[in-house]
Simulated scan of single mutants.
Amino acid sequence: MRHLLIVGASLLLAACGGRDAAPAPQATPPVAEAGAASSSAVVTAPATAAPTAAISGEQAFAMCSACHSRQADAPQRIGPNLHDLIGRKAGTRAGFAYSQAMQGSGITWDAATLDAYLAAPSRKVPGTRMVISVPDAERRKVLVEYLSAP
C-alpha cells in the first residue's frame, strides 16, 4: 500500500509539473520523508533551483489542484475544496469525508498554521491522509497568500 501511495503521488507531481507558464528548472524526484510512519508515506514536492518568489499563487497551487479545488462552487476532489479555508476549523467543510486525525486536530486555519501544515502535514496532524509536503518556504509563502485571498 505504501508503495502505491508513493507511486501515485509521484505520478500526480509529474503530471502537474508542466503547468507553469515558464519552463521549470530541473527538479529532483519526490522522495519519502525520513522517519515517516510505516502506515503512510509522505512525499515532498520537488524543490526548484530557481527562486520561487517569481511564481504566482495560481502557479504554486497547480500541484495542489490535482487533489483540491479552490473555487466556491467547485466539487470536492480527492482532497477537500479549499475555498474560504482561512478561519475555518479543520475537518469541517461539508461534503468531504475527513480523516479522524483532521477532524480531531482542533486546528482553526490561519496563515501560520497552514504554513506549518504544508511544510510537514504528518508532523502537524499525525494520521492525516495528505501525503504531499511543500518544503520550499518561498513556495509555501506564495501558496498561503493565494489560499488566504478571497
Rank of each mutant, 00 (worst) to 15 (best):
Y117R: 02
E58M: 13
P25I: 13
E58Q: 13
F61W: 07
A32L: 12
S39F: 15
P75V: 04
A45Y: 09
N81L: 12
I132P: 00
L114M: 14
T52Y: 11
H3L: 11
G17E: 11
S39R: 13
Q26G: 07
A15K: 10
P135H: 02
T52W: 12
S69G: 15
G87S: 06
S133T: 06
G79M: 06
R93V: 15
Y98N: 01
G79Y: 08
I6P: 00
C64R: 00
M63F: 04
A149M: 07
A54I: 04
P23A: 12
R139A: 15
A94P: 13
T92D: 03
M130T: 04
Q71I: 07
G8Y: 10
L143V: 10
R140K: 09
R77Q: 13
A41E: 02
F96L: 06
T28A: 15
A54F: 03
A62N: 15
Q100F: 06
Q59R: 01
L5V: 07
P75D: 14
P51V: 07
G79C: 10
Q76Y: 02
G91N: 09
L85K: 04
R129G: 14
Q59K: 00
K124T: 15
T108E: 10
F61E: 01
G106P: 06
A50I: 12
K89D: 10
T48P: 02
G87L: 08
R129W: 07
L82V: 03
L118F: 12
I55N: 03
V142T: 15
G127N: 02
V125T: 02
R2T: 01
G104H: 09
E58P: 03
R123D: 14
P30T: 11
A27D: 11
S65P: 08
G57E: 04
I132H: 01
A120G: 14
A90D: 08
A21W: 07
A74Q: 05
I107M: 09
P51S: 14
G8E: 08
E58H: 10
R19T: 11
R140Q: 05
T128E: 00
K141R: 15
P75N: 09
P30H: 09
S56C: 06
I86L: 14
A37Y: 10
A53I: 09
